[in-house]
Amino acid sequence: MENQGWKTHRGDGRLSRKLVGVVTVTSLLALFIFNDMVGDWGRLSGGWDNLVIFFNESLWPPDWSVLEAQSYPVCDQEVEFFCSVAWLGMVETIKIAFVATALGFVFALPLSVLAANNLSPLWMAIPARIVLAAMRSLPSIIWAVLFMIIFDVGTLAGIFAMTFYTVGYLGKLQFESIEGLKNAPLEAAKAMGMTRAETAWHIALPESANQLLSHLMFMFEYNVRHGTVIGLVGAGGIGLYINTYLKLTQYDKVVALLLVIFIVVVLIDFLSMVIRSTVTEEGDVRRPSWSTIFLPASISSKYHTTPMIKHSPNEDE
């Protein structure tokens, strides 16, 4: 007689065995290629000792004179720090990142609307995607080199390079957010006879505003970090100073500037998290704390527990 009772689903070991097999083969293949590329493993001998010597003799302690006023031009500020290499370089990097992010956002927004296939027909979406992909395909450092040929070494090349990359990268993030929108508002708009521009401006952008803002903050963080890299090729900002100290083999000053960058990036990261948390869906997500930035999530969560859900008085009719 057929069993009429509960159906039992037993775990199938085949899937996990397959997974182990795939992981093992992939790892072995990676090790084989790695071994082939390294060739002579003898080069590693003495590497650690070299690093310790380099660290002790050239890197540590950092030379904090980068926080003091430069000898030239003469400092006219009351606080000397504001004439220091660290301050001037960092402020310039942040300015480049800010301008590039803002300009990039302005150009990325219409392109992302054109590229989103729930707002635009394919004949519009595909060219817009190609433009975005082209702008994203070159890293900002290559754009910086190209723009330095046009504008010469300096901030302008940095701004243009970062703006180009921002348009490509932010545009992609944004059109994916728009494509992820719920269908109902877009369908209601289409049935009503709203134009594409009206649907984009009055429905798609407000509906995805939280994500757009989140992407914007992420892009600003990213541009501050990358401002350092493009500075290395002469596109202005703190990277330009780092490049100079590298050429002069003043590695202790390089370390000091890298620590300054680290602190600024952490501060911007914190600021970004605070701003993003204000636009989360329900507004009941607790603000981030320092522990969430510095500690792993497993440890941080012990001190930073999820709050009780708040109910708005308007929820009950």
Binding site: A184, P185, M194, H202, E207
Partner: peptide, 26 residues
Amino acid sequence: LGYIPQRLGLVGNLSVRANVSMGARV
């Protein structure tokens, strides 16, 4: 043609007035 889908099709981030205004916009 007016259409009220099952899931209403409102823009959650916008105010009540902004949502109602969309009807007049067309």
